[in-house]
Amino acid sequence: MKYTITKDPHEDERVQKIIEISGQNIFSCYQCGRCSSGCPMAEFMDVLPNQVFMFLQEGDVDTLLNAKTPWICAACFTCTVRCPVGLDLAAVMEAIRELQLRKNYDYVDPYKVEDREELPPIAMVSNFRKFTP
C-alpha cells in the first residue's frame, strides 16, 4: 500500500469542493476516532469515518469516490453531535455523494426496489433523495 502525495491537499480542487458543499473545515479533524466508534453503520463500511477525513487531509478523493462508506452513512448524526471539534460528518458524506450524484449518477434504481408496496413512503422518499440526482 502506497500513496504518493503529488499536490498540497489544501490546494486540491476536489477537496475544496467538498469543503464548499459541506461547509466543514475537514482539516480540523484530529483523528480521535469517536465518529467511527459511535457509528452504527461502521461495521458495514470499507473506510471508517475518521479515515475519510484522513484521506481528505491527504488529498486522496479518488479512494473516497470509489468507497462504499458515503453510501452506507445513514445520516443519523451520531458522529456529528459527538465530534469534539464540531465537524458535521454527515454533511461531508453528503458532499462526497453529491460529487457523484451531480454527474447525474443513480446509486439506486427505483424500478428495482423490492417490497415497494409495504415500504413506508418516507423510506422511499429519503432513499431516493439521498441516492439519486
Binding site: 452504527p40 453503520m41 461495521e43 458495514f44 452506507i72 445513514a74 445520516a75 443519523c76 451520531t78 439506486v108 426496489v113 423490492e114 415500504l119 418516507i122 423510506a123 422511499m124 429519503s126 432513499n127 439521498k130 441516492f131
Partner: peptide, 20 residues
C-alpha cells in the same frame, strides 16, 4: 435508545437494516 435503525437503507440494503 438513541441508536440508528438503519433508516432509508431499508430500501436497497435490507441486510444492513436486518443486522441493526
Amino acid at each position: 435508545k438513541n441508536e440508528c435503525c438503519g433508516s432509508y437503507h431499508t430500501v436497497d440494503k435490507k441486510e444492513i437494516v436486518g443486522e441493526r
